[in-house]
Nucleic acid binder design. Sequence first.
DNA 1: CCGCTCTTGCAAATGAGTATCGATAGAGTT
DNA 2: AACTCTATCGATACTCATTTGCAAGAGCGG
Lengths: 150, 150
Amino acid sequence: MNGIAKRVAAFESQLRKAGLRMTQQRRLILRILAESDDHPDAKGIFSRAFACDPTLSLSTVYRTMKLLETQGAIERHAFQDGVSRYEHADQDHHDHLIDVETGAVVEFSSPEIEALQAKIASELGYEIVRHRLELYGRKLPAPSRRKARA
Amino acid sequence: MNGIAKRVAAFESQLRKAGLRMTQQRRLILRILAESDDHPDAKGIFSRAFACDPTLSLSTVYRTMKLLETQGAIERHAFQDGVSRYEHADQDHHDHLIDVETGAVVEFSSPEIEALQAKIASELGYEIVRHRLELYGRKLPAPSRRKARA
DNA sequence: CCGCTCTTGCAAATGAGTATCGATAGAGTT
DNA sequence: AACTCTATCGATACTCATTTGCAAGAGCGG
């Protein structure tokens, strides 16, 4: 009991206010998302949810993701593999480092970079609406730790 | 002699080495790209090239873009409008600021940000292979640089 | 000029995501 | 619990960028 039930409840009241309904499908997808700490795509969410409810359709996942996004409950990212990936939005702003070999996603944040971005934009006569910063990297051999039998 | 013919020639010898052919279509597309200082998508390149050679097909543009990309002659960018946009690669590294209202693309570069990226990556145990930094902004009304407070 | 095979144009195929539509099921009311 | 209203669902058709299969065509070394 965790943030999960809390998030679902918060979203439920948010929906109510908008005259929308909290359906079984939305509850399920929301739970899947809240339980995920990676960045699944629509298919990934679908297959996890399908395991719980085999009547669920992929359309509903897409619809729900769009709804959740416009409600600000999740964030959508389009990394360079082309598909949209999602994560719940109730956390601090951060950017992503994607392991080019495994596809693993590491989150990080850098106030210094943010500040530089704002400075650059204003020098060019713009104010930033949003930004996208993705680092694609390869894991370095651990420098301080000896591998057992390298 | 402009860089254009030079680039085409350089690419031609690069192809030769790979056992590939310098066809009319490739020559044309390459010239279009070299002459462009914006970031056209496949359709845009196609329509510019089609004006010179109405027998050209869109498939060929896509195929050629892929070839040019793997040969390192161009760079492909996927901004948030969904389509792939291209630019020739024989220039300094830079990032992009996209005007959210007009779609205009402004190029900029920031060694400070690059340095911070490298630092962050190495702290996370990674070396950067490539990165993607896009600022989405709105043009500020006042071109003056007076700051009320700061 | 020959011929090998890389390339092309066309059309059909993919694949992510969206729209349509009849059927279903939330949720307030009684 | 029954009733009603309509948001939502599942299935399916569709869009749009990009890719691919294939037969005809064109580089280029000889």
